[in-house]
């Protein structure tokens, strides 16, 4: 089963759970399963339209899904998927 790593600041919406494990064919399926189980995460991950927020990136292993097949990227049994929030700022 694929493992999804929840970024630390969003674990308050998963009861402190840092890893979500789920059988899923694609990244999209995995994210949908996560959001179904933890609805409080939805506004932090998705726009109202259902697309991923621009501040959020998703990696499979060390690869940005933008360099793969996007949310349609197929998952293998032992893939590690990470949700990565944008970190930036300034004056």
């Amino acid at each position: 089963m694929a493992q999804l790593i929840i970024p630390t600041p969003l674990r308050k919406f998963t009861d402190g759970q840092g890893i979500f494990t789920q059988e899923a064919a694609t990244v999209k399926d995995l994210l949908a399963a996560l959001a179904a189980q933890h609805p409080g995460l939805k506004p932090h991950l998705f726009e109202d339209s259902g697309s991923l927020r621009s501040f959020i990136r998703v990696y499979v292993g060390d690869e940005d899904i933008h360099a793969l097949e996007g949310e349609d990227t197929a998952l293998q049994a032992n893939d590690e998927v990470s949700i990565i929030p944008a970190i930036a700022g300034g004056l």
């Binding site: 970024p7 630390t8 600041p9 969003l10 674990r11 308050k12 501040f55 929030p85 944008a86 970190i87 930036a88 700022g89 300034g90 004056l91």
Partner: peptide
């Protein structure tokens, strides 16, 4: 953490725009 050169240690609009809970 980050620095504010020549400016106070007060968050800016840019800091707020992408700030995350908990951190």
């Amino acid at each position: 953490y980050h620095s504010h050169p020549l400016h106070p240690a007060i968050p800016s609009e840019h800091d707020l725009a992408v700030a995350l809970p908990y951190f």
